[in-house]
């Protein structure tokens, strides 16, 4: 008895040959992920249980000290500083995503309603900011929010900031920077859903006595879920770990988990603690996405 022959997409072959072929195709990508994702992640896990030597070197003794420190326990008692940073990061990422989604909806519908030729012009305008480095974009906000410009002057007139002050560093500037950075990540996938929207469902909802909000939640939102989900993930995950924007526009006091990690691996030279913070970031991100998914399923069921 030889190999059992099967026909696969018009190809006479055997099961073993198919598995081999599949593995051959996959091996490149698997190798890449192994080398640059799985192994570094495992190293990071191991590192988070090590400790820092006096000169910043890594001492491989198994300890949960880093996690205790992250939870706020230290020789001097308990402080919630690191927990605050983690919590703040979740809030900033959540609000950035939410604001971006709220802005992306009208923008996507606007672009989708343009005639085909100008539509690509608008899409290009959405993408243009990507052509510039993030740091440079953050510096551009410095210029826009500078004290001499109308925005800061208007805020001063309204009594929101002291006379002659810039609008940065501030929480407002952080959100401004974050939203402007992530908006395209929501708009592009959302637009692709909006463009394919089945308008007859919208009309059916109107015909069946729906209020405007019911039309949106029952006929439009479920149809845009595929694009919206991609946009939310593409925004939330990087927003959780971002550090350039809060660093430049938020100032030293407005620290997010990304800044904390950067600090540990950089200036503080405390790699083990940095690794522990990274683990916390990963876990938090995964939990949030899981919650989002569950919420998404609920919306679908409504």
């Amino acid at each position: 008895m030889g190999k059992k022959l099967i026909i696969w997409h018009g190809d006479l072959t055997s099961r073993r040959a198919l598995i081999q072929r599949g593995l051959t195709f996959l091996s490149g990508g698997m190798l890449w992920l192994m080398l640059f994702l799985v192994i570094p992640s495992l190293v990071l896990v191991a590192l988070s249980f090590a400790s820092r030597g006096s000169y910043g070197e890594v001492i491989w003794n198994f300890t949960v000290e880093n996690y205790e420190r992250l939870m706020g326990f230290s020789a001097f008692g308990w402080t919630p500083d690191y927990l605050y940073i983690l919590g703040r990061s979740v809030v900033v990422a959540f609000l950035t995503t939410l604001i971006s989604v709220i802005l992306a909806f009208p923008l996507s519908f606007f672009i989708a309603s343009r005639p085909p030729r100008t539509r690509y012009l608008w899409l290009t305008l959405v993408i243009v900011p990507f052509w510039t480095n993030m740091v440079i974009r953050a510096y551009a906000w410095f210029l826009i929010l500078a004290p001499e410009l109308p925005f800061a002057k208007l805020a001063a007139t309204l009594g929101l900031v002291p006379e002659g002050a810039a609008l940065y560093p501030s929480v407002f500037a952080v959100y401004l920077g974050m939203v402007s950075m992530f908006l395209p990540f929501v708009v592009l996938p959302l637009y692709s859903s909006v463009e394919r929207l089945d308008w007859s469902l919208v009309e059916a909802a109107q015909d069946l006595y729906s209020s405007r909000s019911r039309v949106f939640f029952k006929a439009i939102l479920p149809q845009t879920m595929p694009g919206l989900s991609v946009g939310v993930v593409l925004t939330f995950v990087p927003a959780m770990g971002t550090f350039v924007v809060p660093d430049l526009l938020g100032g030293a006091k407005y620290m997010l988990v990304g800044n904390l990690i950067q600090q540990q691996f950089g200036a503080s030279r405390d790699w083990p603690f940095g690794a522990a913070v990274s683990m916390a970031l990963m876990v938090l991100t995964m939990i949030s996405l899981q919650l989002y998914r569950r919420r998404g399923e609920e919306i679908e069921l409504l």
Binding site: L201, E203, Y209, P222
Partner: peptide
């Protein structure tokens, strides 16, 4: 406007809500 009219339509493509059961579709209005 359409939502205020006592007039209902059977659409050419039927336009059933794909994410709802038959029962929910019928109950929609």
């Amino acid at each position: 406007p359409a939502p205020k009219r006592q007039v209902n339509m059977v659409f050419q493509s039927y336009a059933l809500f794909p994410h709802m059961t038959i029962y929910e579709n019928v109950a929609f209005g």
